[in-house]
């Protein structure tokens, strides 16, 4: 306990850094995931295959490989940036495919008749998606979406370990390797930090879930 109290500053900084990574990654992953899901259910074959290919590639590729590609592959073709942005964008691109699939499962759960009715009153594909399908799909996507978000938070540790540093997980490394503190209390502090992030988000999302549940 002393270890955590004594190094509270470091833990707090690391925690904030993790929050930062997660926030920016989510900011990219959510809209991109929605776009990908829209592409995958669109009537345009090209968009469908584009979305499908994206999801297949990023779902079958380990995040570590994606991050390596971002940090070492991209500079070779002249794209340069900080590790922080490479890592965060890599996490966003990777997580978008999971967001997409969570949404798509929700879209598939909306009865086909809803889309037919929307088209029958003359709504365009985009309008029926926006006004009729997505609002219902989002509700049934919430449980898998919660998972995708929690995975994103946990994967931020890989981004941190990867060279961004100073995130919550890197705190463990700093304290144990560099300052020689014992691992058990340090890691307990790290776990507590992640719980502090994941638990409220899970709680909020399940609250939303009960609020917006639709009658059928």
């Amino acid at each position: 306990m002393d270890v955590i109290v004594d190094n509270f500053d470091l833990f707090a900084q690391g925690w904030l850094r993790t929050v930062q990574i997660c926030f920016y990654a989510l900011l990219g992953a959510l809209p991109l995931g929605i776009l990908l899901a829209a592409a995958r259910v669109s009537p345009v074959p090209f968009l469908r295959s584009l979305g499908g290919t994206w999801v297949t590639i990023f779902m079958s590729c380990p995040l570590t490989v994606v991050l390596f590609f971002m940090a070492f592959g991209l500079p070779e073709i002249g794209i340069k940036g900080s590790y922080f942005w490479f890592g965060t964008i890599g996490l966003a691109l990777y997580s978008a495919s999971f967001v997409c699939e969570a949404l798509r499962s929700g879209i598939n759960a909306v009865p086909a008749g809803q889309a037919e009715a929307a088209r029958s009153i003359g709504l365009s594909f985009m309008r029926s998606l926006n006004l009729v399908i997505l609002p219902q799909a989002l509700r049934s996507s919430l449980p898998p979406m919660t998972n995708a978000i929690i995975y994103l938070i946990k994967n931020s540790a890989i981004v941190g370990a990867f060279g961004v540093g100073q995130d919550l997980f890197a705190v463990a490394d700093t304290l144990t390797a560099a300052r020689g503190l014992s691992a058990l209390p340090v890691l307990t502090g790290v776990i507590a930090g992640y719980l502090l992030l994941v638990l409220p988000i899970g709680r909020i999302l399940s609250l939303i879930e009960t609020k917006v549940a639709i009658l059928r």
């Binding site: 009865p111 008749g113 809803q114 009153i121 003359g122 009729v132 219902q136 059928r216």
Partner: peptide, 23 residues
């Protein structure tokens, strides 16, 4: 496309399973 949407706006459809927008 949009012309089909416009056509559908002019043709009403009532389904067996109602298909009211549930939300």
């Amino acid at each position: 496309g949009n012309r089909l949407a416009a056509h559908r706006a002019d043709v009403g459809m009532v389904f067996q399973s109602f298909n009211l927008f549930a939300h």
